[in-house]
Design a protein around this nucleic acid. Sequence first.
DNA 1: ATTTTATATGCTTGAAATCGCATATAAGCA
DNA 2: TGCTTATATGCGATTTCAAGCATATAAAAT
Lengths: 138, 138
Amino acid sequence: MNKPAKIFKALGDETRLRLANLLLQTDREICVCEMVDALELPQYQISKHLTILKNAGILQASRKGTWVYYRLDDESSPFWRDFLKVLGRHLKQQAFVDDAAKLRQRLALRQNGQCVVGFVAATAIKNKFRTKKAAKNL
Amino acid sequence: MNKPAKIFKALGDETRLRLANLLLQTDREICVCEMVDALELPQYQISKHLTILKNAGILQASRKGTWVYYRLDDESSPFWRDFLKVLGRHLKQQAFVDDAAKLRQRLALRQNGQCVVGFVAATAIKNKFRTKKAAKNL
DNA sequence: ATTTTATATGCTTGAAATCGCATATAAGCA
DNA sequence: TGCTTATATGCGATTTCAAGCATATAAAAT
């Protein structure tokens, strides 16, 4: 598949568009657990969809210790970078706005601009990947 | 599915993107058989994909006698109209040029700006919907 | 070293999308 | 009316895709 079709296909999924939205609204690197908390979806889903977005050339990943941060691919063509910027400004539907709000709350937990906690309560339970640390916070 | 995801999904298919490209490059109404000849794909495929694009709110159809013409949906939001325009300019620089060239050849067969023939030779054979009129031209 | 935590991935299942073919519908024409 | 042509659509077969669950990997912490 050529690149444009691949990019559209990647964005043609509700969850992946929500993920892209998170990055478009904040314009910085976001780590996986932060997205898990923002969208309240199981961790494996987030991971898989991020992989698809990455393979489409929309995102890049970089590991920092245990955490993996994703950002918009800054090596993609100017056209697609601009396109995504403009798209970000037009995702005004409530769902997208809510996601972004929840992400901002979650980002408040950072220290020195770094993510320092995994996913928390509600999502953790849903994931059954609930950590002991998160359990204590219940 | 929300609208943006729906539109992206529709464009996330090679054939449908090629169809959209035809309309973007010529910026006028194109009828089904002309697209069949431009893309050299079976008529039923073209029809089905056009329906999907129409349902996504990207295209509009209008029948004129036996022929059905498709055009970009001019009732869609300003954002999506602009977006498609910009996309068209981008696709022009990439592949998709051959399709557009073939379409232009095909459009040369029009009379008074109207399509007056069905699909012709090569494509017609592939379709097994070969008309007697087209057969004579072989 | 062992355990804990963050992230990724293999596998199965069900749903959805696509294709190919046949045929239906709609409209013009003899 | 009956035939021809343009377009659409129903259906079965095949493929693609996402969800769900379990588990693997990678890196820290104890």
